[in-house]
Amino acid sequence: EPLWIRPDAPSRCTWQLGRPASESPHHHTAPAKSPKILPDILKKIGDTPMVRINKIGKKFGLKCELLAKCEFFNAGGSVKDRISLRMIEDAERDGTLKPGDTIIEPTSGNTGIGLALAAAVRGYRCIIVMPEKMSSEKVDVLRALGAEIVRTPTNARFDSPESHVGVAWRLKNEIPNSHILDQYRNASNPLAHYDTTADEILQQCDGKLDMLVASVGTGGTITGIARKLKEKCPGCRIIGVDPEGSILAEPEELNQTEQTTYEVEGIGYDFIPTVLDRTVVDKWFKSNDEEAFTFARMLIAQEGLLCGGSAGSTVAVAVKAAQELQEGQRCVVILPDSVRNYMTKFLSDRWMLQKGFLKEEDLTEKKPWWWHLRVQELGLSAPLTVLPTITCGHTIEILREKGFDQAPVVDEAGVILGMVTLGNMLSSLLAGKVQPSDQVGKVIYKQFKQIRLTDTLGRLSHILEMDHFALVVHEQIQYHSTGKSSQRQMVFGVVTAIDLLNFVAAQERDQK
């Protein structure tokens, strides 16, 4: 057995438009009618409502009807409940999964919650491996369901041993009777949507819809739904939504950006999952974080739909894509998950301010006199920076000697690579993860907040409520011999709460 199987392995699926269902090699399930009293909570997966979006479509000038398939009504709160249950049931049916076995899954959280929910009911041990950027709410729900959680670096490539995929496979090879159901490759993922989600949409719309818009992560949702719609409703256009920084969209030119990270969760990847059939997507749109969270908040405030950030991405694209539809036509959007997962993220004004998705003037509360002053007023001194090749031991000596707790790590040209902190280095040394002679590049981390000289002290204040420091950066445009230009970030300084307090105190003292 291989040590790991690539999540982007070539698909062996034989589905073709027009091929009889009787030739399918898979076990198919028909939607079942729910009894009045459910035998367990797993029976509350599927049969989610279709809700008309009344205000947002009109606000953006849509002539067509805009409908939302509300997947956050599933038992675990997301569309991923469907595939989690289906993968477990299919693994039980073919004898792969037996009582007492362990389920391991690399996930952005929602599939993990679905699997942990099913594992709690069915009696399996469950280990979820997820990147650090995923919300604390997801972690809390997983723990409450009895799952064990392993976190991995957000910026690790999918084929790196440190990625959530790599760590999951390492655990599988170490733990007896453990299984990775593997949402990236498992046919049960798109089949769950082909058999149930798509049929529900067709039934709820009486077979009449002209466009379907869905955000894409593993691709199982859009693949399964689109294949069924292509068979039953061939005139329906399928629109895929991919965040900026991901590479799922086609044509490839759409993916060209210097951005590699994004805040919206559960969609987009740096590889093409095996289950994603991009041939059934008629057109791709890219979405960005700001519009995703703005539209998610709009869905909550104006439509009462308590959905997550990827739902915002989907609707932001839908109001663009559906401009081509006329009166009497219908566009369906998939709202994948609930706001429950993001209470401390985009639902929080403070978080939105820190990330730059909300401006101070958007909030009406009274601010102190210094709130709208610029960061450049602080008069920061030149920063202490270190090269990635310097040793951890030497870096600790320098920081202690100069009285700093942290320093930016830059390359020879001064471009920011990340940050090192005294606390992080000492804990890594004590844990045996690094040696004093190791290069400081081994303990770089990139989960820090950046701020510009033109940003306000109010925004800085919000950042420092949650973080010990902020890195002050400025952009530099560099022209190359080819005539092309590129933008790079340079370090201007490091600012802490002490710097802000000293500035405010000094100004008030001078005024007296």
Score class of each variant (00 low, 15 high):
Gly240Asp: 09
Gly240Tyr: 02
Gly240Leu: 07
Gly240Ala: 14
Gly245Ile: 02
Ser246Gln: 02
Ser246Ile: 04
Ile247Phe: 02
Ala249Cys: 02
Glu252Ser: 09
Glu252Lys: 11
Glu253His: 02
Thr257Val: 09
Thr257Pro: 05
Thr260Met: 15
Tyr262Asp: 02
Glu263Pro: 02
Val264Tyr: 02
Val264Arg: 02
Glu265Tyr: 02
Ile267Phe: 02
Phe271Thr: 02
Thr274Cys: 05
Val275Arg: 04
Asp277Leu: 06
Arg278Phe: 04
Arg278Glu: 02
Val280Trp: 10
Asp282Lys: 14
Lys283Ser: 09
Trp284Ala: 02
Trp284Arg: 02
Ser287Val: 08
Ser287His: 08
Asn288His: 02
Asp289Trp: 06
Glu290Gly: 14
Phe293Tyr: 02
Thr294Gly: 15
Arg297Thr: 06
Met298Thr: 15
Ala301Pro: 04
Ala301Gly: 12
Gln302Arg: 10
Gln302Phe: 11
Glu303Thr: 10
Glu303Trp: 05
Glu303Arg: 02
Gly308Ile: 04
Gly308Arg: 02
Gly308Phe: 02
Ser310Gly: 02
Ser313Pro: 11
Thr314Val: 14
Thr314Asp: 05
Val315Gly: 09
Ala316Lys: 11
Ala322Trp: 02
Glu324Arg: 02
Leu325Asn: 02
Gln329Gly: 11
Asn341Ser: 06
Asn341Pro: 05
Tyr342Ala: 02
Thr344Leu: 04
Lys345Met: 05
Phe346Thr: 04
Phe346Val: 02
Ser348Thr: 12
Ser348Phe: 06
Asp349Lys: 08
Arg350Val: 08
Arg350Gly: 11
Trp351Val: 02
Trp351Ile: 02
Gln354Ile: 02
Gln354Phe: 08
Lys355Arg: 11
Leu358Trp: 02
Glu360Gly: 12
Glu360Tyr: 13
Asp362Lys: 14
Asp362Asn: 05
Leu363Gly: 10
Thr364Ser: 12
Thr364Ala: 05
Lys366Phe: 07
Lys367Gly: 12
Pro368His: 06
Trp370Gly: 02
Arg374Tyr: 02
Val375Arg: 08
Glu377Ser: 11
Glu377Tyr: 02
Leu378Ser: 08
Ala382Asp: 02
Ala382Thr: 15
Thr385Ile: 13
Leu387Gly: 15
Ile390Glu: 06
His394Cys: 05
His394Ala: 02
Thr395Gly: 02
Glu401Arg: 02
Glu401Ile: 15
Glu401Gly: 11
Lys402Ser: 14
Gly403Trp: 15
Phe404Trp: 13
Phe404Asp: 04
Phe404Thr: 08
Asp405Arg: 09
Gln406Ala: 10
Ala407His: 04
Pro408Glu: 02
Pro408Asn: 02
Pro408His: 02
Val409Tyr: 09
Val409Arg: 02
Val409Leu: 05
Val410Phe: 10
Val410Pro: 02
Val410Lys: 02
Val410Ser: 10
Val415Tyr: 13
Ile416Ala: 02
Gly418Cys: 09
Gly418His: 12
Met419Thr: 12
Thr421Arg: 14
Ser428Leu: 10
Leu430Glu: 15
Leu430Arg: 13
Ala431Thr: 14
Gly432Tyr: 05
Lys433Tyr: 09
Pro436Met: 09
Ser437Trp: 15
Ser437Ala: 13
Asp438Met: 13
Asp438Lys: 15
Gln439Asp: 08
Gln439Met: 06
Val440Thr: 05
Val440Lys: 06
Ile444Thr: 09
Ile444Gln: 11
Phe448Ala: 02
Ile451Leu: 15
Arg452Gly: 11
Leu453Thr: 12
Thr454Gly: 08
Asp455His: 10
Asp455Lys: 06
Thr456Asp: 13
Leu457Asp: 02
Arg459Ile: 14
Arg459Thr: 14
Arg459Leu: 09
Leu460Asp: 05
Ser461Met: 13
Ile463Leu: 11
Glu465Asn: 15
Glu465Ser: 11
His468Ser: 14
His468Tyr: 08
His468Leu: 13
Val472Asp: 02
Val473Cys: 15
Glu475Pro: 02
Gln476Leu: 13
Ile477Tyr: 15
Ile477Lys: 02
His480Arg: 09
His480Tyr: 11
Thr482Asp: 07
Thr482Lys: 05
Ser485Ala: 13
Ser486Leu: 14
Ser486Lys: 14
Gln487Asn: 13
Gln489Ser: 14
Gln489Met: 13
Val491Leu: 13
Phe492Gln: 15
Phe492Asn: 15
Val494Leu: 13
Ala497Pro: 02
Leu500Val: 12
Leu501Tyr: 12
Phe503Gln: 04
Glu508Ser: 09
Asp510Cys: 13
Asp510Leu: 10
Lys512Ser: 15
Lys512Ile: 02
